[in-house]
Design a protein around this nucleic acid. Structure first.
Length: 893
DNA sequence: ATATAGACGTA
DNA sequence: CGTACGTCTATATC
């Protein structure tokens, strides 16, 4: 890369790459399975390999003229002197890792890269010192580090390369990126970290203060010093907590400040890349048994030599963006038949405000942007034809479908959706907005769309840029789906399901206002009665919905025994209240519990009432990209958590009714699908047999475990086994099981052991699932859906245990999600093909709710049960049960 | 208006 | 100290 200096002749812009050797090697170590990277002599090389590929990639991509790698040393740093608990609680570094650092240093030496350590300091401090020197010397500096503390180094000329989930996923963080993500300029990032604390380094912060609050304070008072100076002006609990923990905050800040004035054995100018020592590389790579890497290393050298001679005058921007403000039909006529059209859209609420359509031909991008509300009928027809006759790429297609409908037209087959693609590639991300995806997959920043503006002289270039990003994203994402064997799941399942969900949302579900109003009236009455009774029991009013006020009443006024601790006091949840009632028999507790119950019900009914639309139906939104396991979720309102467990709660389901033109609601659900999948995937013969007996599953299993005849299984034994079975699929501990069953921990442990004696295959399976996930980095469902769990290798015991439980559960919950999605899609397809009016309205994880015409009832039941039970081929049948009725309540079974 | 904690509904 | 979700209320602070 070149730039012109003031004298007018070209000079090379110097670029310095500094890598945190330890942190990058550590990530590589955990990302790559050691058994694939062990030499014939037994030397583990996964960290060496991972580090080397990562470094090569950085060099190839950024072509630095100067480069250095910094390492920590064994000598404790000054930070530990200041705070002995620093980084305490971290797991011991694995032995196989330690040995590889030496090898990495050897690799660096053979390829001509400088490495640096300094006793008493951390690699971070070396990075900071070099970054500062580089910046001052006018160099462009890239700092590769997995430590967020390095963000404080960012300036106009210093960027941080921060690894994402996988080692291949490297994000460039500049000032804008940090501000976008954390809400403060980079130099203040450590101020936030000091306030919130740092778990990994065992540095507690101010309780109750998270990233948002910290960022707000720091911005308001212009830095941490200002925050502390004005601590007395910050009122309330948080202000109090801040003043109380000032010492912690100051300590955190001292510890996370990186030193920029270390005496190092090298100056930045010394850090040029030396030629690769080919012979040494050959010898070392022979030992390491790296073969493919050799060529990349040698190529690197060749490029470095020629780098200085190339006069790089090519324009990088080869795309010409054509923006047309009129002549829509004329533009359309020029679109080639085989062009792939990327669509970007801009909304005001749900309404489509503007649209950009983009396609690329050889070296040129073409884009047309328009505001659909100004289209004439003919033009609108043209647009429909254009979109239906071409392959289309979108972002959030379901939203676009709804918006198109509001404009007065429907789009049939919309092909690709980059949001779904990104979701399948990384289902744990909580956000798939276009700017986020652009940054992550294209390393291109995209301005976050401003609020939509009205036409008059508006600038469409931003929207055009978005359409181009949609187009480019698909190229990248689909390729990645193919290499990860996810393309089939995407095309064959998620895309069709998205179109199905659009239909579900469009239809909505009819509500009986009479039932809702009746319920509201009753519940309001009951709430008032319980409230009154509660007040009388203690002799005064109190806000029953305030845990804080309740604590005062229960533990101070009434001096009741303390319950389990929460963050700021003692719990007042239902479980604890029941326990307190058993101990104290105080009537207040009864009334409080009744009040909780009734007010919760009323709140649900109120929510439903306000969600009923003008058509008398509720149109929920199904989220297809939020649940990391592959499940759907439902929002505004959530129709997947309507009460079902109590008769009282079920009455709310009585308000869900067939709409005009329909006669019944039909529900069909999989019975015990997760346990069946456990049986199938674990191949546990006893469990499969228990299912095949056709008798009550938990009862049969209890008889097997306790070696008694089925008739002798008591309800208590049955429920113990039931709890154990479901608990296991969630990674339940002996402690948790003991809590749930009200038995001692040793008893719970014994129960688990006994269970596994009979169902050994289940235990083996669960163990294997976690191990495989640890090695591969992800779990997979039967249909190949992945969930990445990098924390399986975390040094943090808590994080690791959490990831292990998620790993146990993800393949089971995820496979069940795959199956019901497929079943739903097939049911809808068959209903459509048969020309039936009956239709699917809701999906509740293992259940479908349909609205049925009486004359079609038998056929629909047949279709639903056949299709659902046939949706997957397992070693045991998928049982489906169904119910029909005049409401969701009556359709229960 | 917005963030956080606590509680609780579903599979 | 059991997985996966969403929503409501209180509370504190803007």
């Amino acid at each position: 890369m070149k730039k012109r200096n003031s004298q007018g002749h070209t000079m090379i812009q110097q670029k310095l790459l500094i890598i945190d050797g330890h942190s990058m090697a550590f990530r590589a170590f955990f990302a790559l399975p050691p058994e694939n990277f062990t030499t014939t002599t037994g030397q583990a090389t996964n960290a060496v390999y991972g580090f080397t590929t990562m470094a090569l990639r950085l060099i190839e991509e950024h072509q630095p003229t100067h480069i250095a790698v910094a390492f920590d040393t064994k000598v404790k740093s000054f930070r530990s002197d200041e705070y002995p608990e620093y980084k305490a609680g971290r797991a011991e570094t694995p032995q196989e890792f330690k040995g590889q650092i030496g090898l990495i240093k050897q690799v660096l030496e053979t390829v001509g890269i400088t490495w640096i350590t300094k006793d008493g300091f951390e690699a971070d401090d070396i990075l900071a010192t070099l970054a500062k020197q580089g910046d001052e010397a006018g160099m462009k500096v890239l700092v590769a580090s997995g430590d967020r503390d390095s963000f404080q180094l960012i300036t106009d000329n210093v960027n941080v390369i921060y690894p994402g989930r996988t080692p291949a996923d490297l994000k460039i963080m500049d000032a804008a990126a940090v501000e976008e993500r954390y809400g403060v300029p980079p130099q203040w990032y450590p101020h936030i970290a000091a306030l919130t604390g740092e778990k990994a380094d065992n540095l507690p912060g101010v309780p109750g203060v998270g990233e948002k609050t910290a960022a707000q304070w720091v911005m308001k008072y212009a830095g941490l010093a200002g925050v502390l100076a004005n601590a007395d002006k910050i009122g309330g609990k948080r202000g109090e907590a801040l003043r109380e923990h000032e010492a912690d905050v100051l300590r955190n800040r001292r510890l996370n400040e990186l030193l920029t004035n270390l005496e190092l054995p090298y100056n930045v100018a010394d850090l040029t890349r030396e030629p690769v020592n080919r012979q040494a590389v050959n010898e070392l790579f022979d030992v390491l048994e790296f073969n493919r890497l050799r060529k990349r290393v040698f190529d690197l050298d060749a490029n470095a030599d020629s780098n200085e001679e190339i006069d790089d005058t090519r324009t990088i921007e080869t795309l010409e963006l054509k923006l047309v403000s009129d002549g829509f039909q004329n533009w359309i006529s020029q679109v080639p038949d085989q062009a792939v059209l990327a669509v970007a859209s801009e909304y005001v609420k749900t309404e489509l405000n503007a649209l950009a359509i983009y396609y690329a031909t050889e070296g040129t991008g073409h884009c047309y942007a328009l505001e659909p509300r100004f289209l004439s009928d003919t033009e609108q027809k043209e647009l429909e034809d254009l979109l239906t006759s071409h392959a289309v790429i979108t972002h959030e297609a379901k939203r676009l479908r709804h918006a198109f409908r509001e404009c007065g037209f429907e789009i049939g087959e919309l092909a690709e959706d980059v949001e779904l693609e990104a979701y399948l590639l990384g289902p744990d991300q909580r956000e798939y907005s276009l700017p986020t995806l652009s940054e992550k997959y294209l390393q291109r920043s995209l301005p976050v769309a401003e609020s939509a503006q009205l036409s008059l002289l508006r600038d469409f270039s931003e929207l055009a840029g978005q359409a181009q990003v949609v187009y480019d994203l698909h190229e990248v994402l689909f390729k990645q789906l193919e290499t990860t064997q996810l393309a089939e799941l995407y095309r064959g399942l998620e895309l069709p399901v998205q179109a199905d969900l659009y239909e579900l949302e469009k239809h909505g579900v009819a509500m009986s206002m009479d039932v809702l109003n009746q319920l509201l009236e009753e519940l309001t009455e009951q709430v008032e009665v319980a409230e009154e009774a509660a007040y009388n029991a203690i002799g005064h009013k109190v806000n029953l919905a305030s845990p804080m006020q309740l604590q005062t009443v229960l533990f101070e006024e009434l001096q009741m025994p303390k319950t389990k601790k929460t963050k700021r006091g003692y719990t007042t949840n239902a479980e604890a209240l029941v326990e307190l009632y058993e101990k104290t028999q105080h009537p207040f507790l009864q009334h409080l519990l009744a009040h909780r119950d009734k007010i919760k019900m009323r709140q649900i009914v109120e929510g439903l009432i306000s969600a009923v639309g003008a058509d008398g139906r509720i149109h929920t939104t199904f989220q297809q990209t939020v649940a990391a396991t592959g499940r759907l979720s439902s929002t505004e309102p959530n129709l997947q958590n309507i009460p079902a467990r109590t008769a009282e709660g079920m009455r709310i389901r009585g308000a869900f009714v067939p709409g005009t033109g329909f006669d019944y609601l039909l529900t069909a659900d999989y019975s015990q699908i997760e346990m069946r999948l456990m049986a199938h995937m674990s191949k546990d013969e006893a469990l499969i047999e228990a299912f095949k007996s056709g008798e009550d599953l938990h009862r049969t299993m209890a008889a097997m475990v306790f070696a008694v005849p089925v008739e002798e299984v008591t309800p208590a034994l049955r429920s113990q086994i039931k709890a154990t079975s479901y608990g296991l699929a969630y990674g339940l501990s002996s402690y948790g099981l003991s809590q749930q069953l009200g038995i001692s921990v040793p008893e719970a442990r014994k129960l688990k052991e006994k269970y596994f004696e009979r169902f050994g295959g289940v235990g083996r399976f669960l163990g294997e699932v976690v191990e495989e996930a640890r090695e591969r980095g992800f779990t997979a469902t039967m249909m190949g859906r992945r969930r990445y769990l990098p924390d399986l290798n975390s040094g943090n015991t808590n994080l690791r245990a959490m990831a292990e439980r998620a790993a146990l559960n993800a393949p089971i919950q995820g496979t069940a999600a795959d199956i019901i999605k497929l079943a739903m899609h097939l049911v809808m397809r068959v209903l459509r093909e048969r020309g039936l009016a009956s239709r699917v309205l809701l999906q509740v994880h293992d259940e479908l709710v349909l609205e049925v015409v009486a004359s079609e009832l038998n056929e629909v039941i047949q279709i639903v049960t056949d299709v659902m039970s046939g949706a997957a081929e397992l070693s045991l049948p998928l049982d489906v049960s169904f119910g029909v009725g005049a409401s969701w309540q009556d359709a229960a079974h």
